[in-house]
Design a protein around this nucleic acid. Sequence first.
DNA 1: CCTGCATAGTTGACGTATCACCTAATACCT
DNA 2: AGGTATTAGGTGATACGTCAACTATGCAGG
Lengths: 138, 138
Amino acid sequence: MNTELPAALHRQLQADSELSLPDYDVLVQLTDTAEARVRVLDLARALRWERSRLSHHIKRMENRGLVRREEVPGDGRGAFVVLTPAGRRTIEQAAPAHVRAVRRLIFDAVGEEELAALGAVLDKVLARLDEGAELPGV
Amino acid sequence: MNTELPAALHRQLQADSELSLPDYDVLVQLTDTAEARVRVLDLARALRWERSRLSHHIKRMENRGLVRREEVPGDGRGAFVVLTPAGRRTIEQAAPAHVRAVRRLIFDAVGEEELAALGAVLDKVLARLDEGAELPGV
DNA sequence: CCTGCATAGTTGACGTATCACCTAATACCT
DNA sequence: AGGTATTAGGTGATACGTCAACTATGCAGG
């Protein structure tokens, strides 16, 4: 399921818009903030992505005109990622169908109490992952 | 979780062997069959992979000497994927630590009845995915 | 000031995944 | 047999992710 569910959502997005699932995740983060402007590191944390991955992805999205980078006044190292008007238009156009797809594939299928049980299980495994972050000793 | 759990298992495999998680999955399928020899299409179905993906992956594994292709006597189009001795050695050496990691991250954390609940939820969503295979209408 | 270290972010190389398309062999149908 | 459709599998282009290494700025202690 952890491959086929994202794959299905990805295909739906591609069919209805020019966005990939990761594109969508990035844009959601940006629209969720007041200024549609986020520091790269904060964005990486919110998405639980590596900085490197985000950097590559932002570059691709920048080439397509969905976002752009901007300098940070106080800190010469930092960078903002900023939603462009085109980016905003794109996600606003793509969101409804995506939300419907998520509802149809998950929430219509599962039921509330099951969902809670699922959440509990996932949290436990995530906690395991965090505590054993230095895995390779097993 | 669907990104970080595979990522953790992947890192563990890489640390303890020269295998990636997909490599491991392929090798498991091969060792699970009597002759360590499987038709490409059967392998793709068992892994729930696209033929194309499998073809690319087999080529990479072939270059590393883990598997090799073999002709099918009756059918000039087909191909077997065959486990090489090196491939067998590699997976036998890698499996114990991987099994331990899976147990530690999942089965130690979750508990039997929760696991059953999890399975039920995943099955429902998978059923949704199959029935709505022609998604993009939403 | 200046040396050293930490932080923010980028880059290049490489493995992986998908898509659209291609080739060759087989099956089917008359 | 001859023509068409189907099936098995492979390929090239491109996007995605990770790792290791890099640049440049900031910052702290002497």
